[in-house]
Amino acid sequence: MLSLVLLSLCSVVLGASSSNQQFLANSAVADILSRGSPILGFDNGCSSSSKTCDWMKNYPDSTLLVRMNLPGTHDSATWNYTQATQDSLLRYTGPEADPAAIYQCQNKSIFDQLNGGIRVFDLRFAYNPGNDTLGFHHSQALLAPTATVDDVWFGFYSWLDEHPTEAVLISLNYESGTGTPRDLKLEQLIYNLMNNAVAQRYWVQTNGTLGTLGEARGKLTFLQRYDYEFLPASATRLGIHLPPEQWLDNTPIIEIVYNQKENLIAYIEDYYEIDGLPIGAGAAENIQWKFNATTAHIENATMYNRDSLYISFASSEHDADVPAETPEIMALGNGTVPGVNQKLLPWLQERKGKRFGVIMLDFFDVVPGLVEAVIGL
């Protein structure tokens, strides 16, 4: 579909022959995906034995998204943010306060995540250098100075064209820790990217509800985690709005009513910085605290509020600890102590068949079978 959209634009602009139009459309898509590759990676497809590549095809259209088990990734765009990346960006950012390991939460590209069964993506945007385009950040860490939000949206569009049975949820948050301005221009840029002619074909256009899998297949569903401070109140909204002032920082139980009329509620666990332990408590205690908070929230999802949205973040860090417990250590352990992901795998397997909701993971693929356990395969 994406090449057809660009094909129609080429036809209008150039009046070219059909073969030339197709060539131009394909070339335009290739250029866009290449520019977005520091975030997107490259789509190498799925193995024939993959259980997770098109796993949603086995669910009926009538399935409500809030009743599904959806594996997601926390800070999904950070896979390429190594120490070498951080060092190469000093001319843009200056020295970072923390090493790259504090910011890196994934090690597989967006395309690899999609092919690996991930269906919910946690992305943070702000200005790229020059304040003319929007890109991706994790706190003050600039992830790729030339890749844009628009490029990455096209990557999702192209993947969905190849996997029309699948539905993808995008949680998008404004990254306030970048030091770049929050102004009318920024809001207009992101608003236009969500509402232009191409976006209208690929984003679910309903507001205030997540709806059914059938309505969401082949499309992106929007979870808006930022407010519009400068655009008028009449600005079109897509998906559901999870206001940042209600998304309480570093909290194990968050409750947000995202549709007042129908009393639709999101329950969220986002206890990401272990703050109840003394400095030097070590990996074992930090990991156990995080595991306890996450599984308590997922347990609630299995028992209560069947038509409410549950989002549980299995991701965390404790950079105040000495040495720091990085996202990788918290997720995967330190070689001696198992991480949250290793502990979560058997816990989920023991509860196969229950509703877990959305589970957001760091380093999602390193523990074999974890994504399948989230889905319930």
Rank of each mutant, 00 (worst) to 15 (best):
L6F: 15
L7H: 12
L7C: 08
S8H: 13
S8L: 14
L9S: 08
S11V: 09
S11R: 12
V13Q: 10
L24Y: 15
A25E: 13
S27K: 13
V29R: 10
A30Q: 13
L33S: 04
S34N: 09
S34Q: 14
R35K: 15
R35M: 09
G36E: 01
P38A: 03
C46L: 10
S47R: 12
S48T: 14
S50N: 07
K51L: 15
D54F: 05
W55M: 09
N58D: 15
Y59M: 10
Y59H: 11
S62D: 13
S62V: 07
L65M: 13
R67N: 15
M68T: 10
P71T: 03
D75I: 07
N80R: 05
L89T: 08
Y92T: 10
G94V: 09
P99M: 02
A101F: 00
Y103T: 02
Y103F: 15
Q106A: 01
S109M: 06
F111E: 01
L114K: 02
N115E: 13
G116R: 05
V120H: 03
D122T: 00
L123F: 14
F125M: 11
N128K: 06
P129I: 12
G130K: 08
G135D: 12
G135T: 14
S139N: 13
A141Q: 06
P145I: 12
P145E: 10
T146G: 00
V152D: 04
W153H: 13
F154N: 12
G155K: 04
F156H: 10
D161K: 04
H163S: 04
P164G: 03
P164R: 02
A167N: 05
L169W: 04
L169T: 08
L169Y: 05
I170A: 02
L172Y: 09
Y174H: 15
Y174N: 08
G177R: 08
D183N: 15
L184I: 12
L184T: 07
Q188E: 14
Q200V: 06
Q200G: 11
W203A: 00
N207S: 14
L210P: 11
R217V: 12
L220M: 13
L223N: 04
R225I: 02
E229Q: 14
F230L: 05
A233L: 10
S234I: 08
A235K: 05
L242P: 10
L242D: 08
P243W: 08
K261M: 06
K261H: 05
E262A: 11
A266C: 07
Y267Q: 05
Y267M: 00
Y272K: 00
P278W: 03
G280A: 06
G282R: 06
A284K: 07
N286W: 02
Q288T: 11
K290A: 05
F291A: 04
A301P: 07
A301S: 15
T302Y: 07
D307W: 03
S308R: 01
I311C: 02
A314W: 03
S316Q: 04
D319L: 09
A320P: 05
D321R: 05
E325V: 14
E325R: 03
P327T: 04
E328Q: 01
G339N: 03
Q349E: 15
R351M: 09
G353F: 12
G357E: 05
D362L: 01
D365S: 09
V366R: 06
V371Y: 04
E372D: 15
A373Y: 08
I375V: 15
